[in-house]
């Protein structure tokens, strides 16, 4: 799924972007979005290993990096060592634009941009990155939720089976018994299930 992104680059001036991200799925999403917007992702690194060489090699216009990466300080150093190296994006924010940086920090994105890049293009890059990081965060949240639901489901099924086997109940009866227990005790179904499993296993050992 790709949102409509404004064209950041034209064929004649495609921005070169480097990604440093230890989450390959997120980097892939971001790379696609940037490519859709007309940028060229020249490299995707999962760590800062060999970062300096790759920057020298590709001369990216922008480097996008996860804010929680300890390798940010290495990029800071690079920007100080050489005027031409990309600089921390926070430098390019002004009063009108402070929300872009704040949004970026909240979404977990950080970036380093070469001097002289059009502020509009900088903002566009940041907007794409922020949108993709947020999307990834939401997807991860959903995945966590689904995993938990699946795990809960397994426990419910196990508890039901135990009740059916040892208490001679059919499935519907077992389910209702658990539901009643949950309501009477003010517990979640999954916690009732866990209790049943541990007691039943003890009982039947």
């Amino acid at each position: 799924m790709s949102l409509d992104a404004p064209q950041i680059s034209s064929a004649s001036s495609s921005l070169k972007i480097m990604l440093v991200d230890d989450q390959p799925a997120r980097a892939a999403i971001l790379e696609q979005a940037l490519t859709d917007a007309g940028c060229t992702v020249v490299a995707r690194l999962s760590s800062a290993q060999g970062l300096m060489k790759r920057v020298e090699e590709h001369q990216p216009d922008a480097i996008i990096i996860d804010i929680e990466s300890p390798d940010r300080d290495m990029l800071e150093h690079m920007s100080v060592l050489n005027q031409h190296n990309p600089k921390p994006v926070i430098m390019f924010s002004d009063e009108d634009d402070s929300s872009t940086i704040e949004k970026a920090i909240r979404a977990g994105v950080s970036a380093y941009i070469v001097d002289g890049l059009n502020p509009k293009r900088v903002k566009s890059i940041m907007d794409v990155a922020v949108a993709r990081f947020r999307e990834f965060q939401a997807l991860r949240g959903e995945l966590e939720k689904t995993k938990n639901q699946l795990a809960d489901r397994k426990l419910l099924d196990e508890a039901k089976s135990l009740l059916m086997k040892h208490k001679n109940l059919n499935e519907e009866e077992a389910y209702h018994a658990m539901r009643k227990m949950a309501m009477d005790r003010g517990q979640r179904m999954v916690d009732v299930a866990k209790n049943i499993i541990s007691v039943m296993n003890l009982f039947n050992d």
């Binding site: 804010i67 929680e68 990466s69 300890p70 390798d71 940010r72 300080d73 990029l75 800071e76 921390p88 926070i90 940086i101 920090i105 950080s110």
Partner: peptide, 10 residues
């Protein structure tokens, strides 16, 4: 925090 840059920016 994990980096000095983060501390500064935040």
């Amino acid at each position: 925090e994990v980096s000095w840059a983060n501390i500064r920016d935040k």
